[in-house]
Design a protein around this nucleic acid. Structure first.
Lengths: 163, 163
DNA sequence: TTCGGCACGCAAAAATATTGCGCCAATCTG
DNA sequence: CAGATTGGCGCAATATTTTTGCGTGCCGAA
C-alpha cells in the first residue's frame, strides 16, 4: 500500500535521504549545496519521497535528559495466536497510546517487542497494565527496565532502499 | 549540561511539543491554530526549545517497508559484568556501527537490548557476528527477528519534562 | 538521427519565517 | 498600595524560503 509510483533512487537520493534523516530542519538551498543541486531540484525530489510514502513524516527529536522522571522500558510480549481480529485490536490499542515508542512483531518465543516511555513509575505501571495486562489476548509479558538509553533513533540505512 | 536557561514549560508548551514530535513539518500558522497562539508566538517558543537544547533536532522518518531487503532484529545481550573498561569498549563498538539503531542498558536477566538494521540477511549475519559474537565480554545473546515494524520512533511524553 | 520524456536551473510569484514595536498582565519593589 | 519592571502577546513590516512556470539539455527508444 505505500508504493505509488515505482520510484528509482540514485546516489544523490541516498545522500539526500541520509541528510534528511540526520537533520530535516535545513533549507532547500543548504541541502542543495550538500548534494550539488539547485533548491528547486531538491524540493522536487523531496516532494517525490513524500508523495510516494517513502518519507513518512518529519518529527522533532527531544533530548531525553530533559525529563528526569522518564521511565523507558522494553516489554517482551507473547499473545494468543488465534484471531486476526484480536491481533489488529492489539495493534490499534498500542498505536493509540502516545507512550508507545516502538512496536515490533518478531519471530520466536516472543511475539512483540514494545518500547514504552512513561513519566514516572506510577505512569509506567498504569500504561503497562492498561496496554498489556488488561489486553484480552496477551498471554504473558516481561518488562526490561532501561537503565541507560545509550542510543535512540530510527535511521534506516539508505543502502537497503529499493533502488 | 543541557540546561541553559531554566526554562519553564506551561500547558501550551506541552501541547506544542507533542505536535512537533508528531509532525514537525507544519507551518507556524497551523501550529498556532492548534494551540491557540499567533505564528510569531509559536516561533518564539520553538526558538526557546531549540536554544535551550530541549529540541535537539528535527529528523525525517522513512517508511521501513520501502526497503524490501531490510532486516530488523532485536538482540538481547548478556555480558560478563566485570570490567568497566570492557563495558565502555562494548558501547563504543556498538555506537560506531551505523546499523545499530538503538541500544538500551537494561536491568534484569539481560544487560542490553540492541536493535539492528541491516540490508539483507548476509549483512545482518556479518554485523551481529562482528558486534556480538566476537565481542570479548558478551556471554550470550539471542536474536528476535522483526517480522513487522509496526511502529518506530522516539517520542518522549511531554508530561515527563521538567516543568 | 530524430523524437519524447525527464530532470535540471533560473526566475517570478506565493507563502512562510523572522523581527521590531507597542500593549497588557502579572510580579516585584519601595 | 502605587509605580516600575519583566515577560509574553498580537500586529505589521521585512527577510527568507518554498513553490511553480518555463526554456534547455541530456539520454533512450523508434
Amino acid at each position: 500500500m505505500p508504493k505509488k509510483t515505482e520510484l528509482v533512487l540514485d546516489d544523490t537520493d541516498h545522500r539526500l535521504l541520509d541528510e534528511l534523516q540526520d537533520d530535516a530542519g535545513r533549507t532547500l538551498r543548504e541541502l542543495g549545496e550538500i548534494v550539488g543541486l539547485s533548491p528547486s531540484a531538491v524540493q522536487r525530489r523531496v516532494e517525490r519521497y513524500r508523495s510516494s510514502g517513502l518519507l513518512a513524516r518529519t518529527a522533532a527529536v527531544l533530548d531525553p535528559t530533559f525529563s528526569p522522571d522518564l521511565v523507558l522500558a522494553v516489554c517482551l510480549v507473547s499473545v494468543e495466536r488465534e484471531s486476526r481480529r484480536l491481533h489488529e485490536a492489539f495493534h490499534r490499542r498500542l498505536l493509540a497510546a502516545p507512550e508507545v515508542q516502538q512496536v515490533y512483531a518478531v519471530y520466536g518465543e516472543w511475539d512483540y517487542v514494545v518500547v514504552l516511555a512513561a513519566s514516572g513509575m506510577a505512569h509506567h505501571g498504569e500504561i503497562s497494565t492498561r496496554l498489556l495486562m488488561d489486553a484480552p489476548n496477551v498471554r504473558k509479558y516481561t518488562t526490561l527496565f532501561v537503565l541507560d538509553p545509550i542510543r535512540i533513533g530510527s535511521t534506516i540505512p539508505t543502502g537497503a532502499l529499493r533502488t
